[in-house]
Each structure stands twice: as structure tokens, then as C-alpha cells.
Amino acid sequence: MDTSFVKTPQIQQLLDKAAGLQESGGNPRLKAIVRDLTEALMALIVRHDISESEFWLAMKFLGEGAGEIGLIVPGSGLEHFLDLYMDAKDAEAGRSGGTPRTIEGPLYVADAPLVEGNADLSSDPDPDAQVLHMTGTVTGPEGEPVGDAIVHVWHANSKGWYSHFDPTGEQTPFNNRRRIKLAPDGRYAFHSRMPSGYSVPPGGATDQLMQALGRHGSRPAHVHFFIEAPGYRTLTTQINFGDDPFAADDFAFGTREGLLPVPSRQGDSAYIAFDFQLQRAATAAEQGFSARSRAEAG
């Protein structure tokens, strides 16, 4: 059947009623979005002749996989699409420069300890891992140091587990997580135990989806950052280690040009020098964080 079926009066009336277009209350923007989304899904069902069983299997997958939605969204490419869309809007508005944004991922935890100076991120011993030393500066669009910035940094341990999400229960709270208050010169420095990449939970919803698509569910070793400062747009980004075998094939599409430093590995230590550049905020909202749900300790 042709997708023109969705344009018939009966279906169009159904869409209007389901979206509440005939009702005086509610949010007009949400009504328009829900109507368009539902119509697009209906057209998809017709275009691919999706059966009733296939439809309910998909609903079952989404229901049972809700706990992994933070992995399913980046694995589907949607989170990376949002970055590309925001980049395109910036370009359209004539805004350029700054460190590239990239996906946040689902494993941030709010209210990590606030520290100054050369911060030690690792609360737990990790004797099999090299010591990672990372240094650099945070500047604005004219190269001015951003001395009142706070750098949020978090990463996995050498086994690929994040504190607060570690199924072994072996990590202490906020291991490999800190907020670093910068000095007036805009320089930051921290050291920690070298993270490794990770794969999605075996047999979980994301793994099932990746296998059905003929893809893997692995990420390269990486370090996440938020950088916030008054007057500047909050930056959400991460660096992926350029010498990791999955650096060019990240299942979550987090790898971006300009975010692939190669650690200088020397004995039991590895060193990365990486500078961040912020954009000026055009609105107060750009100085904050997105409305995404995030974990909180305790």
C-alpha cells in the first residue's frame, strides 16, 4: 500500500484528534510535534508494511530496554544527530569557533567534589593502569583565559566501569569524577588512572539492537567534560584516545575531528595536552545545562 493512505481524511482526522488539535487546553507546540511524530510513524508502518506482531515486538523492546535508553539513543545515532543539528544552526547563524561539542553519554553524576589545582580524580587504587596526566588551558573566542570556569571531568576505570554505575560495587563514590575550579590563568591539570573503553551490557537491549543491525557495541577509551563559566556557552564534549582501536569506529558516534589526542605513553604514565576554547553565550540559557535527566549521588 502507498503511504498516501496516511493522507486520507479518516487518518488525518484521527491525527488531529489524537494530538488534541480540537481541544482548547494543552501546549500548542507539543500538539504540533506529537501530530507530526505520529504521522511519521504511521507512514513508516505503511512504507515498510510493518505487521501487528512486528509493531508490538518493537514496543516490547522499548519497554524492556527503557533502562538502557541512554545507550540506545547514542547507538542509534540520534545523540550525534543533535550535535550535527546544533552545529548546522550555529553555522546558519554565523557562529563559529570553539572546541567541538560531542555527546554527553548517560553516565554523568552531579555534585562531584569541587577542587582546585592539579586534581587527583582517582579515589581508588587501580594498579594495573597507567597514570593519566592531562593539562591545558580554557580560553574564550579571543584567546582570553577563562579563569572563573569550572571543568567537570569524569571517566571509567581501567576495567571500563564508571563509579556509581559499577556492577561490581567496588568503586567508591565519585572515583574518577571531579569538578575543577580554574585559577585566573585559565589553566587546568588533573591526574587519574588511565581509563579503558567499554562495551554495552552483554545481552541487554542495546546489545540486542546492535547485533540485529550487524554492529558492535564498543566505545574507545575516552574522558568526558562539561565546562561552564559566566558569560560563556556551556561546552559538552569528550576526548577519545586516538590510538584506541575503536577510535574510528565508536558505536556511539562520539568521535569527532579535533577531539582525538594520542596520549604520550612513557613507562607507567601517559600524558595528554589539550586546550579548550569556549564560545560566548548569546542567551542566559546557553550558560546552563540541557534539561536531560542526570544521576545524583545518594
Rank of each mutant, 00 (worst) to 15 (best):
L209F: 15
S218I: 00
H216C: 01
S192D: 06
V223A: 04
G197F: 01
L213K: 11
F226I: 04
T206M: 14
P220W: 03
Q171E: 01
Q208S: 15
R179S: 13
Y198P: 07
K181S: 15
R233P: 04
S192K: 00
G214H: 09
M210L: 15
P202A: 11
S218F: 07
N175M: 06
R193A: 00
R179Q: 15
A229E: 07
H191D: 00
F226E: 11
H191G: 02
F190R: 05
K181T: 10
G217H: 03
M194N: 09
F190D: 02
L209S: 12
D185L: 09
A205W: 08
V223I: 10
Q171S: 08
L209G: 13
M194F: 04
P184I: 06
P201K: 13
G186L: 06
A205R: 02
T172A: 13
Y232K: 10
P184G: 09
A212C: 10
F174D: 09
A189M: 00
N175V: 06
P230S: 01
F174V: 01
S196E: 09
I227N: 00
R219I: 04
G186C: 04
D185Y: 08
Q208E: 14
I180T: 10
D207K: 11
V200C: 08
H191P: 00
P173A: 09
N176C: 12
R215C: 15
G231A: 10
L213I: 00
T172E: 07
E228G: 15
S196L: 08
G203Q: 08
R233A: 13
A221S: 13
L213M: 14
R219H: 14
F190K: 03
A189F: 08
G204N: 02
R177W: 11
A183C: 12
P220V: 03
R219Q: 15
R215I: 11
N176F: 08
P230V: 07
F190M: 04
R233H: 06
A183V: 02
G197R: 05
K181Y: 05
R219D: 15
R178A: 14
Q208H: 12
Y188I: 01
L213D: 08
A212L: 12
P184L: 04
K181Q: 15
L182F: 04
S199V: 14
A205G: 11
